[in-house]
Amino acid sequence: MTAFQIFLIAALAAVGVTLVALALRGAIGRVAALLWLAVVSAGIVFAVAPNLTTVIARAIGISRGTDLLLYLLVLVVLYGFLAIYLKLRRVRRELTLLVRELAIREASAGRGEPRGEGEPRGEGAPAGNREPGGGRTT
């Protein structure tokens, strides 16, 4: 066993222990924890027996085990980017709605909400009556 194999196994095992600890504390869901543990376990198996990846790759028509891992990695990374992008879009949208509501509330609070209701609605009183003047509290 090479030094790198030992390092890899230790690192993966550390990730596994962390996952278990997080799951026990309820920080991550059980299903998610089990899925990640499966990935980590597979990693340890492949670290111990690197040729296994080639055996699996050959079975599905890919010549090298490292190629198989590369293709899987590309899929996972692409999916990850898309998922994060969609999440970011949603968060941005929510941020906009929040900032909007704050802006409207701040402006309305400055002059006391009652004035807002049914304001101009086009009846022809002079503008001077409508403008709050010193309405803002500062």
Partner: peptide, 18 residues
């Protein structure tokens, strides 16, 4: 008197809608 403020920059479209 109708001054509103976005605490964080959200873009022109967002400001118009606000």
């Amino acid at each position: 008197p109708h001054a509103l403020r976005h605490l964080v920059n959200r873009g022109q479209g967002a400001a118009l809608q606000t």
